[in-house]
Amino acid sequence: MRFFSKTANTHARPNVPVLVQVAALAIILIRALDVLMILGLLGPQGMMEFVHRSVQTWALTLVFLASLVLVFVEIWCAFSLIKGRNWSRWLYLSTQVIAAVYLWAASLGYGYPELFSIPGESKREIFRSLVMQKLPDMLVLCLLFVPAASRRFFRLH
């Protein structure tokens, strides 16, 4: 019996471009690091207060649950990218647009909770901070959409 032999049930595509592999791994690592940084920033007591504050109203609960769903969708996209699913890179792009628009709106005072906003004196300063915060995600999107090898991989599968 061979433990490491390929079977018909293997879902990963052969010859996945390195840039796609790097992008998928980066998505997972960025999200894991985000969670760890939030846990480190708030601590256990702060997390309990944040969750308690997030379930005070229906609107806050929906924002909280939507943010969790967004993280899980992004991780699901990362695994689907390796399988060569073209829709996964478009879905990941959509999640980034949604997150950026919400962060921008929340930072300008149109959304809650405060954890999902970027502090700043002016719109320009907030926008600059938002771009800097989303820079890793923009790099991942470039790895998925710009190189010819990545585009070809998703076109063939």
Rank of each mutant, 00 (worst) to 15 (best):
L29P: 05
L29H: 12
L29A: 13
L29C: 11
R31D: 15
A32E: 10
L33K: 02
D34H: 01
V35L: 10
V35S: 08
L36Q: 13
L36R: 11
M37T: 11
I38M: 13
I38R: 15
L39H: 10
L39A: 09
G40K: 07
G40T: 06
G40L: 05
L41S: 08
G43T: 03
G46P: 10
G46C: 15
M47W: 13
E49W: 02
E49V: 00
E49Y: 01
F50D: 13
F50Y: 10
F50I: 03
V51L: 05
H52P: 00
H52F: 11
S54C: 05
V55D: 04
V55A: 11
V55F: 15
Q56S: 14
Q56P: 15
T57R: 00
T57S: 15
T57V: 12
A59M: 14
L60P: 01
L60C: 07
L60E: 15
L62V: 12
L62Q: 14
L62W: 10
V63G: 12
V63S: 14
V63A: 15
F64C: 06
L65V: 12
S67E: 09
S67I: 03
S67M: 10
L70A: 04
L70H: 05
L70Q: 04
L70N: 04
V71L: 06
V73T: 05
V73W: 04
V73Y: 00
E74A: 13
E74F: 11
E74P: 09
I75P: 00
I75N: 01
I75S: 01
W76C: 05
W76N: 04
W76E: 01
A78T: 02
S80Y: 08
L81Y: 10
I82Y: 08
I82C: 07
K83C: 04
G84L: 05
R85H: 14
N86P: 12
W87I: 06
R89Q: 13
W90I: 04
L91T: 07
L91R: 14
Y92C: 02
L93Y: 06
L93G: 06
S94G: 08
S94E: 01
S94D: 02
T95A: 03
T95I: 02
T95C: 05
Q96W: 04
V97T: 05
V97S: 03
V97I: 04
I98L: 07
A99C: 01
V101Y: 06
Y102V: 02
L103S: 02
L103D: 10
W104G: 01
W104F: 02
A106M: 08
A106C: 07
A106L: 03
A106K: 11
S107Y: 05
S107E: 01
S107P: 00
L108G: 06
L108T: 06
G109K: 14
G109R: 15
G109N: 09
G109T: 11
Y110L: 09
Y110I: 08
Y110S: 09
Y110N: 12
Y112C: 00
P113W: 03
E114S: 00
E114Q: 02
E114M: 01
